[in-house]
């Protein structure tokens, strides 16, 4: 195990986060505050409770996931894409470091940052709405799992992308819509039967449902199914990354 190498990549990536602190931390917090003002206060005041939870509190887990998912993907993908773009990847490829260690460094840093953002948004939310977390330990476990899972996904995206356009394509055009339509701002039980069925094909539904369960003890889909979906997503990412390093796909010729 090349510990110094993992530490070097991890601190290099974290240094990048702190160098761009405004963009990294402040912007998700600002965005989230705006959601609270618009959805929570302005619209929420006219909404009834959902599953016995006030609307303002109901949207908190979805908002956290919205940021955690997009930030995990964009940070992790940029982390591995940028060395590819500048050519400095040569150093990582020529270092005595295994694939697992490379992933630990990059994904570990991206997940750490997502975790930080998740916690900051939770704290910001607590300023707007009274929050009671039903299963705090599970909440932390899920937050950690999602951060790691989507950072892994971002790593794959960063390896695959051969331009900045592709890099922003997935978070903006796939993940954000899926999150919005995945029950961040409503319970999917409120949808007509047809759209309810369609929505069940959206993987983000399970993630948000699972996370919301840890807050309020209620969920759109069963906890077991959600957890299984989430874990298989992480397993699929890990399998794909293993394949990337085995074949050298887009990293080595």
């Amino acid at each position: 195990m090349n510990g110094p190498a993992v530490a070097a990549i991890y601190s290099f990536e974290m240094a990048r986060t702190f160098r761009t602190i405004v963009q990294s931390i402040v912007s998700p917090v600002l965005t989230t505050s705006l959601y609270f003002v618009v959805f929570g206060s302005a619209i929420g005041a006219r909404m009834t409770e959902i599953d016995g939870v006030p609307y303002g509190a109901f949207i908190v887990p979805g908002l956290i996931m919205l940021s955690v998912l997009t930030e995990s993907i964009s940070n992790s993908s940029l982390g591995i894409y940028f060395p590819k773009f500048t050519g400095t990847i040569y150093e990582i490829l020529s270092a005595p470091i295994s694939a697992v260690e490379i992933v630990m460094g990059f994904v570990g840093a991206a997940a750490t940052k997502s975790l930080m953002i998740g916690v900051i948004i939770l704290a910001t939310a607590a300023l707007f709405v009274p929050l009671h977390i039903e299963h705090p330990v599970w909440m932390v476990v899920f937050l950690l799992l999602m951060s790691i899972g989507f950072s892994l996904f971002g790593f794959i995206l960063g390896v695959w992308a051969d331009g900045f356009e592709k890099l922003s394509f997935v978070p903006v055009l796939i993940i954000t819509p899926l999150t919005f339509l995945g029950g961040s701002f409503y319970s999917i039980d409120m949808l007509p039967p047809f759209w309810h069925t369609v929505t069940l094909f959206n993987p983000v539904v399970y993630i948000i449902s699972l996370f919301r369960w840890s807050f309020f003890g209620t969920s759109d889909v069963s906890v077991g199914v959600s957890l299984a979906m989430t874990l298989s997503f992480i397993a699929a990412c890990l399998a794909f990354i293993t394949w990337i390093f085995k074949t050298g796909y887009k990293l080595k010729s």
């Binding site: 090349n2 510990g3 110094p4 190498a5 530490a7 070097a8 990549i9 290099f12 240094a15 990048r16 160098r19 940028f82 060395p83 500048t86 050519g87 400095t88 040569y90 150093e91 990582i92 020529s94 270092a95 005595p96 470091i97």
Partner: peptide
């Protein structure tokens, strides 16, 4: 290895990037 192209990261300091390389190759700081 000193590569042919001038491939460096842009925003790090000289000290940081050289220390990074040492760590990457498994040597303690």
């Amino acid at each position: 290895l000193v590569p042919q192209e001038l491939t460096t990261s842009a925003f790090e300091t000289v000290w940081a990037t050289v220390s990074f390389s040492r760590g990457l190759f498994g040597k303690p700081a």
